[in-house]
Design a protein around this nucleic acid. Structure first.
Lengths: 152, 152
DNA sequence: CTACCTGCAAAGACTTTGCACGTGT
DNA sequence: ACACGTGCAAAGTCTTTGCAGGTAG
């Protein structure tokens, strides 16, 4: 693979098939907005805010409420994951395989996003500074279901 | 130091002095709510939501708007940093030195928080699973001021 | 046909802002 | 004194929910 975050059309088509298969096994129906959302999530590199998704959906106008509901549904299927970049807006991205693993650099002012591929914390902070950022800090958070909640 | 997140009273007093000195050098005034907030931030281990801070302030009743405004002011002084755990509530913690560095495990259901002291990503995911969590993932985000914004 | 979906509008939750009064230095 | 800070209330965002009509399987 020439670039870590570039996927061939074949890769994307395969991933889309996987995702659609997952839907078929659930009781979710494959509606027009749903399909359009999944195509965006598979073909473009997230995470996306609700508004960004709405814009990308221009061909398939879709109420924000519907996007929220679908993201929640996809999250239940572990198809999508919610991210939070500290600006009070929910962001969603397709859950990927290991090779998808990456982190973000978020500008504290303009909120611009950059992807980075390495996965070592200390070294990465240096790398972020090397890219010209100042006042760098990072936050690494883990999400999971705790033992208590698993029993419920 | 016997435990990485335990500080002696002397340490805390010194840190509080540092922080108050920082305030003096700025044009912020040392008001009652302000002082109470700083004491909480120095003496207890955050991050805290606005509501949590309000509860801890019982002796110094303080409007939420005032807490928000003060956290913003402290952030400008690089005294405090905002965290986001993906539940739509702002959280704030004192900016610490290197030895303060830590990460969190957040239950996706009950939002319970645990602190962890190591700083290697892969190993940590295993560690999180070892603590009984399932469906573990993590998010590592960097914050900084990008080259563009520095020029402004 | 039935369960699931969607759009619209209303309600909710968190946060920000305006303004007049109060306070630290 | 004067600039800065606070409480209160109103306004702003983003998100969630209720409901009636529509649609996939």
């Amino acid at each position: 693979m020439s670039h870590p975050h570039t996927y061939s059309h074949a890769d994307q088509a395969a991933r889309l098939e996987q995702v659609l298969a997952l839907l078929r096994d659930s009781r979710l129906k494959l509606t027009r907005p749903r399909r359009a959302l999944l195509e965006i999530l598979v073909h473009e590199h997230g995470p996306f805010t609700i508004e960004e998704l709405a814009v990308k959906l221009h061909d398939t106008p879709c109420d924000p409420a519907t996007i929220y509901r679908n993201m929640a549904a996809f999250e239940d299927l572990d198809l999508v994951r919610q991210c939070d970049f500290g600006d009070g807006m929910a962001r969603f991205e397709l859950v990927g395989q290991d090779e998808d693993h990456h982190h973000h650099i978020i500008c504290r002012k303009c909120r611009k996003l950059e992807l980075i591929d390495l996965c070592f914390v200390r070294e990465l902070e240096k790398l972020v500074r090397d890219r010209g950022y100042t006042q760098v800090h990072h936050s690494l958070e883990f999400y999971g279901i705790c033992a208590n909640c698993q029993r419920e």
